[in-house]
Design a protein around this nucleic acid. Structure first.
Lengths: 289, 289
DNA sequence: TTGAAAGCGCTACCAC
DNA sequence: GTGGTAGCGCTTTCAA
């Protein structure tokens, strides 16, 4: 009959372990990154489907992180999911101190203190190489993203390993130092001579790949995919746009979100639980063959 | 010294009007719409800058709306901002019944019961027409978005009015029935013969415009902008990508967010306040001249 | 089965 | 000033 209990009062009264606020914070550092923004969307959807209310916390500067986490604990959130694209994992230790359940995405914790869900980036690199090699291409390159995280480096590693195994030589590496569209576009302008000699190019993100593609087509007149095959990484919704039809290594976003939910539920049910790192397999998504 | 008060307990104790939860809900219906997703991002940023915690509520189906609003009131949110792209304004009356401060975006309330911030869509249409006419073009068309909201229709109205005033004739209207990229792409494939005869095309959203553009360039071989000028509407971040360089009618997103903040603050300070409708002026953003 | 009371964390108020 | 107390809305527990 239209009555709505006060959730605040409820959490207040109930023995902390049994009833909860059902608030889960999603920490995002860089919304302009299409993949992070996509991940946020999927994640918040999954949370809602499990009757959790997502709270968004946008942390632009690393130094705001501690304060943001404090505020979250003030809101009695049941857990924190960190889409830690450009934030160092160490910054999240505050959560542990406050014993806030925490799962990070995007950057693994080397020390095994923090639970984390990752895409297997090494395998992603191998998949990309596998695909390009299977097309009979041999002059290959890689466009690296940010250098301060492990994602781009691991993708490169997997890519190079398979290429060295099969061809006995290394791929050319170009450094964009960012995962963004513009970085890809500008890199392709700058490094056009190197790119002209390539047959296949694996980019550390879809946005990079789209930037490179646009630059090749509209600035340098390189025909994609006829003269140059480009493979992206992430599989953001835009990669499917008919203008791009980007072949890409898809991160299993749905699976990532489900795993996050699973881990949170485990922590909630089980109080004490060793932090775990889960690596999920990426999948090759071939478009425009 | 690391102590964090429990916000819940605080709201509980304090005379409702003075201290608040500082939680503001953002209701979004369609995250796949790039403009809504962009608006959400800007909005949540503005809220955070005013020390408000954004809560995301994703309402896919109209029938879930009432329940979602009930839950929000259970969380004692201080206000609700509805990005009401595909939801009818009437659905939000529940907020009024619970006397939850409410501001809607994207769809105005005809009856003046609900506060709302809008871009002046009629003016947007006029601006687009003005621009195309100033380039000396006379064979003009419009790609309509969803028909159930007023946005697309008002843009069409402004567009047609100015064209009729200046040329004494009407622009061709094509119906995509959606604001999405794919709808634009497919429409341009379907209606290619009509489009071939045009010199300028105003699309009801940037995503539509990009879809049309890609279809023209990659399927039909129409050169954009040499043979056909395309003008979008919204100014999403992607419109600036070098591959598109889309001339567009920019919604004043920053101003919209600030106005929302202003209205919420007014309501909070002033208890009773007549609902107001604010129309903000769009701006022409010329790219690739 | 139903009802009354205590207590969750905090703030407001009113004595002192 | 400064402490002590009541009460916010709810759940849990214990008594009738």
């Amino acid at each position: 009959m239209g009555y709505q209990p006060n959730f605040f009062a409820r959490t207040l009264s109930t023995p902390a372990q049994k009833q909860r606020s059902n608030l889960v914070a999603i920490l995002v550092s860089d919304f302009s990154n299409p993949f992070q923004s996509y991940l946020f969307e999927v994640l918040s959807n999954t949370l809602q489907q499990h009757a959790k209310q997502p709270m968004l916390v946008n942390v632009k500067h690393e130094q705001d992180l501690d304060q943001a986490i404090m505020r979250l604990s003030g809101y009695q959130v049941d857990g924190v999911v960190a889409v830690a694209g450009s934030l160092a994992v160490e910054g999240f230790e505050q959560c542990l101190r406050l014993s806030l359940p925490l799962v990070t995405l995007g950057r693994a914790d080397e020390r095994g203190i923090i639970s984390s869900v990752q895409t297997d980036n090494y395998q992603a690199g191998r998949l990309a190489a596998e695909h390009l090699l299977s097309l009979g291409l041999s002059k290959l390159g890689f466009v690296a993203g940010r250098n301060d995280g492990s994602a781009s480096n691991e993708r490169l590693l997997g890519f190079q390993h398979l290429i060295t195994e099969r061809l006995g030589e290394q791929a050319l590496v170009l450094y964009a130092n960012s995962y963004g569209y513009s970085a890809g576009f500008e890199l392709a302008v700058r490094a056009i001579e190197a790119i002209r000699n390539l047959e296949g190019l694996f980019c550390a993100s879809d946005a990079l790949a789209m930037g490179v593609m646009d630059s090749c087509r509209n600035v340098s007149g390189i025909r994609v995919p006829e003269q140059l095959r480009i493979v992206g990484c992430d599989d953001v919704p835009q990669a499917a746009w008919q203008g791009y039809q980007l072949t890409t290594i898809a991160q299993p976003v749905g699976e990532i979100a489900d795993t996050v939910m699973l881990k949170l539920n485990q922590i909630w049910q089980n109080q004490e639980l060793a932090p775990t790192l889960t690596r999920l397999s990426p999948k090759l998504k071939v478009r425009r063959t």
